[in-house]
């Protein structure tokens, strides 16, 4: 167990480093961009050139990546924080500390001042959605998979397929049109601000519905497939022909085995939710991490993109670790 954790942990760290380099390479594709984004749209070419020189932006990509990583780890002061540059950039935490993600050119604030509150908002939204997705998809999947080919299975399967066929923005628009425009029972946007006339809780309903409906269909199909596969296994026949009642066979013999594969899939939904919120938050103007990432990407706010991706990857990677551990606990064969 400890060995497994160490091995997977090392692999995951490697993933983080490699992926952050990938993002770095993508966003800093042309070095001049960095200086231009920092100075804003009205900067003169000479200014851009001078800043590029001062920040050593002509260095090879790998050198710049190492420098960025050093700033993040607190081994080096953020070069933008240098008052000599005259950029009026100041981080109250200091120029050199562990976890220094740099300075957002879009919001004109240190990244650490922006990212965490947005992340908390998103965690609430994704958490509620996850809490809906898991029971809903399990229920749909198990009921459909218990008697494949039955009328109930047909209805539930077509329902799940239809749910997965509705992209979040399309679903968002449809739900908003129905509940906000025609029925006027729910708010069409969820800025989480007071004074919109809608209670805070009601602002969550539509975004959660969009996330949960789309994703539950997908997970339910996975659960159904796994359930059908397990029910066809010879050991289920063994259990039935022992004289056990069918209900007991399903509860004791089928469910645990049928949950091994979907367990991984379900945990991967956390990873998916991080991406899923980008669209949902945009549809409902929800002040979260996803919308921030989109704004940063569209603006070219490199420090913020880099920080947001790292956080997203970290969550994804930890989820993977969790699913490995869970698999290890669920499947005795994996334990050896």
């Amino acid at each position: 167990m400890v060995g497994l954790l160490l091995r997977r942990g090392a692999a995951l760290l490697l993933t983080l480093v490699a992926a952050s380099f990938l993002v770095f390479a993508l966003t800093q594709f042309s070095p001049a961009n960095v200086a231009r984004e920092t100075l804003g749209a009205y900067a003169l070419p000479e200014q851009v050139h001078i800043l590029s020189e001062k920040l050593h932006l002509q260095d090879p990509l790998v050198v710049r990546y190492v420098r960025w990583a050093e700033v993040l780890l607190g081994l080096r002061a953020d070069p933008l924080d240098d008052p000599a540059l005259g950029l009026h950039i100041h981080d109250p935490r200091g120029a050199r500390y562990f976890g220094n993600f740099g300075y957002s050119t879009l919001f004109h604030e240190p990244v650490n001042d922006i990212i965490w509150s947005r992340l908390a908002n998103t965690a609430v939204l994704a958490g509620i959605a996850f809490a809906v997705i898991v029971p809903l998809s399990m229920l749909l999947g198990i009921l459909a998979g218990m008697r494949p080919g039955s009328r109930l299975d047909r209805v539930l399967s077509i329902l799940s397929i239809t749910m997965t066929s509705m992209p979040e923005y399309a679903l968002g628009v449809i739900l908003a049109a129905i509940f906000a425009v025609w029925l006027k029972v729910l708010p069409g946007t969820s800025p989480l601000a007071k004074g919109t006339g809608w209670p805070l809780a009601s602002q969550f309903l539509l975004p959660v519905a969009v996330l949960a409906l789309y994703d539950s269909g997908y997970v339910a199909r996975m659960v159904r497939a796994s359930m059908i596969e397990v029910l066809g296994k010879p050991y289920i026949r063994t259990a039935l022909l022992k004289g056990l009642p069918r209900r007991r066979v399903i509860l004791r013999h089928a469910l645990r085995n049928a949950m091994i594969t979907p367990f991984t899939v379900i945990l991967l939904q956390i990873n998916w939710l991080i991406g899923g919120v980008v669209v949902t938050e945009t549809v409902f103007a929800y002040p979260g991490f996803g919308r921030m990432l989109l704004q940063a990407s569209l603006f070219g706010d490199i420090a913020l993109i880099e920080a947001a991706t790292l956080v997203a990857l970290f969550v994804a990677v930890v989820t993977q670790l969790l699913s490995d551990v869970g698999y290890w606990l669920l499947d005795p064969e994996a334990r050896g």
Partner: peptide
């Protein structure tokens, strides 16, 4: 490594840059 990225995030970063 690539599959660790949330897909939408990957698309957004890629196309935006």
């Amino acid at each position: 490594i690539i599959l660790a990225f949330p897909v939408v995030v990957l698309y957004v970063i890629l196309i935006a840059s």
